[in-house]
């Protein structure tokens, strides 16, 4: 992380796996975590490998985290709020089933 001169931004506090960190108001959860050089956000459901943000624009779904108890939240599409509790997502996440294309595939 290399500091670039920015206009001052109001700060908020968020929690990541129990650790409190400062974030800029108006930035995404993914940006706030990357600012602190957290690169791994989750493990995959299939092989348990580590993953982190890849596209930062809501396309790849590799930055999924648990936010305030809700799994499968896109960290790059969710904006920080004071007191937000973010957790690494391990595997598929417990609840909150995605509805996606499960049509006949034959």
């Amino acid at each position: 992380m290399h500091e670039i001169e920015m206009k001052p931004s109001p700060k908020v506090s968020i929690e990541f796996d129990g650790q409190t960190l400062q974030a800029n108001k108006g930035e995404t959860v993914a940006a706030a975590l990357l600012r602190q050089t957290h690169l791994a956000f989750r493990t995959t459901p299939v092989t348990g490998k580590s993953r982190g943000p890849f596209c930062m624009m809501g396309v790849c779904f590799d930055c999924l985290v648990e936010i305030d108890g809700a799994p499968n939240r896109q960290a790059c599409m969710t904006y920080v709020e004071d007191g937000m509790r973010v957790k690494r997502q391990l595997g598929a996440g417990d609840t909150g089933v995605f509805l996606s294309d499960e049509e006949d595939t034959q």
Binding site: G52, C55, M56
Partner: peptide
């Protein structure tokens, strides 16, 4: 797919 590999577009974002 490794954490730390991102698109150049994401660097710009």
């Amino acid at each position: 797919t490794l954490p730390g590999v991102m698109t150049a577009g994401s660097a710009q974002i």
